[in-house]
């Protein structure tokens, strides 16, 4: 199912949870809503689910007005952050709930319900837990039961609110891959909310980065990581080195000296240069048009090392990645030039 969100705004008192949000969700894709807390991602999810209403704007499911329908009429499978399993019902009854509460003429027979629930329990690989109660399950098991319950109604759309937020690191990794596989098997349009960029990058087909109620960027994980459209996205996703620079005649100056990189068409004026730690090349020879600084610390294990460099005459200390083969010592002077970077003019 295709979802169109047009000019959706939502305020809670003076706080703008969503500010004219526009988004197209493609049929069958797995989309991540990524952002820090308070960015509006959960509000957007709840609006799509029908648990909240926008003050303005439109939500269309396959071109049809979804806001005119109640949560129950939207056929949306929803997995809550804390699962919201019915605590007085067994796992089996939890999954069967959505089928049992259908009006009599639309309700499947008891045998069909049993078959359907068994199949879902098989799908989430927890058939042996059918008669347990939610409080007898581990977090990861509850998560999968909540998903099975959402899938039982044959949803046109699957929504997951921080699906891995309450789990410990190891279970989270396993479930991520499992969700990915499940999605490629079922191909139901799915949206999940997360504040964990690694999770979004690893699981989603496309990522929507949100901040302060606005969408900052929409794109494939690779694209968002490599070509962040705004300073916020660069900073929020992956590690960043940020340098205050000045652009003059298409050359970039740091502390009044050119650093030998192209301004990529950025206008003259104050700007911020963003780069990834591994994109800092260490120059073999001293060069006046480069960044240079003193090595303050060396740490890290594995193939790459992390080096702290105090730049020039300033207090700016940046962390860069260097291959283990590169010899350096504390106190040594390094000449650096970013191989890949982005410039964002500062706003006044």
């Amino acid at each position: 199912m295709k979802i169109s969100i047009a000019d959706v705004s939502k305020r809670f008192g003076a706080f703008a949870a969503l500010d004219r949000v526009n988004l197209e969700v493609r049929s069958g894709e797995l989309l991540a809503l990524l952002g820090p807390s308070g960015s509006g991602k959960t509000t957007l999810l709840r609006i799509i689910a029908g648990l909240d209403w926008p003050d303005e704007g439109q939500v269309l499911f396959d071109g049809e007005d979804a806001l005119a329908r109640s949560a129950g009429e939207r056929h949306v499978g929803l997995v809550f952050q804390h699962y919201a399993l019915f605590r007085h019902m067994t796992v089996f009854e939890n999954i069967a709930f959505g089928l049992r509460v259908r009006p009599r003429r639309a309700r499947p027979s008891e045998a069909e319900i049993r078959a359907r629930v068994q199949k879902l329990l098989g799908l989430v690989q927890l058939g042996w837990l059918a008669d347990r109660y939610p409080n007898q399950l581990s977090g990861g098991q509850r998560q999968r039961i909540a998903l099975a319950r959402a899938l039982a109604i044959g949803p046109r759309l699957l929504l997951l609110d921080e699906p891995f937020g309450a789990l410990d690191a190891k279970v989270r990794k396993e479930l991520r891959r499992w969700l990915r596989d499940l999605h490629s098997e079922m191909h139901v349009t799915s949206i999940f909310v997360t504040h964990d960029q690694e999770e979004a990058m690893e699981v989603a087909d496309r990522v929507v980065v949100m901040d302060k109620g606005r969408i900052e960027q929409v794109g494939m994980p690779q694209q968002v990581y490599e070509q962040p459209r705004t300073p916020f996205v660069h900073e929020f996703i992956g590690e960043s080195i940020m340098l205050p620079v000045v652009v003059l005649n298409n050359t970039v100056h740091f502390e009044g000296r050119p650093i030998g990189v192209d301004a990529q068409g950025a206008p003259d004026g104050v700007a911020t240069l963003f780069a990834r730690p591994f994109n800092m090349t260490i120059l073999r020879d001293a060069a006046s048009d480069s960044l240079h600084g003193e090595v303050r610390g060396i740490h890290g294990i594995g193939p790459a090392r992390r080096i702290d460099v105090a730049l020039g005459g300033t207090q700016t200390v940046i962390e860069i990645d260097a291959p283990r083969s590169h010899n350096c010592a504390i106190g040594q002077l390094l000449y650096l030039r970013p191989a890949q970077y982005q410039l964002f003019p500062s706003e006044f």
Binding site: S70, H82, A84
Partner: peptide
């Protein structure tokens, strides 16, 4: 209200 919201989204009146 989470359990109630879950029930409503599953189609319960």
């Amino acid at each position: 209200t989470e359990e109630e919201e879950a029930a409503l989204s599953l189609g319960a009146s």
